[in-house]
């Protein structure tokens, strides 16, 4: 199943979304500057300063 994921280029700062297939093995490069320094933002909302890991919520 494909999901829409957030990525950020660590060279030029360009943020973009891309469909990612499950188990996909693909070399990523920035659509703008072609750099390979692509950070997977793990679908966190903007302004979230966590490391992208899911947190347990206390009941």
């Amino acid at each position: 199943m494909a999901t829409m994921e957030n990525f950020k280029c660590m060279m030029c700062g360009y943020e973009y979304q891309e469909l990612v297939e499950e188990g996909e093995d693909k070399e990523r490069s920035c659509p703008k500057c072609r750099s390979n320094s692509i950070r997977h933002l793990k679908n966190r909302p903007s302004g979230d300063n966590t490391d992208g890991k899911s947190k347990k919520v206390k009941q």
Partner: peptide, 22 residues
């Protein structure tokens, strides 16, 4: 490198200082 970017950010270090290229 993904883990390192997260670590650097947590430590208050600009993660862009670590780059990855093929």
């Amino acid at each position: 490198v993904q883990r390192l970017w997260n670590k650097l950010e947590k430590a208050g270090v600009r993660p862009e200082r670590l780059q990855l290229e093929w």
